[in-house]
Amino acid sequence: MNNIIKKKSNRRKFFTTAGKSSLGLMLMSFFPMNIFSKNTKVIKLKEVHPHPQAVKRDNKTK
């Protein structure tokens, strides 16, 4: 780390590389490649309601 901060040429190279990498990755994240998340689509599930007149079993079946 000292090497990067102290030497001017290294500082320049560090920020150049970091900047180029960040720009590249930000560009890539605009493409639909799902790099960081497994699914970018949010699906709203249908609301379900139990039928009010259904008669349920008292005991669980085995």
């Binding site: 590389t17 970091a18 990498s21 960040s22 990755l25 930000m26 994240s29 960081f36 998340s37 970018t40």
Partner: peptide, 11 residues
């Protein structure tokens, strides 16, 4: 840089 980009991604 990747870490910066991840932070930047809001999705």
């Amino acid at each position: 840089s990747t870490a910066f980009a991840v932070t930047a991604c809001s999705d």
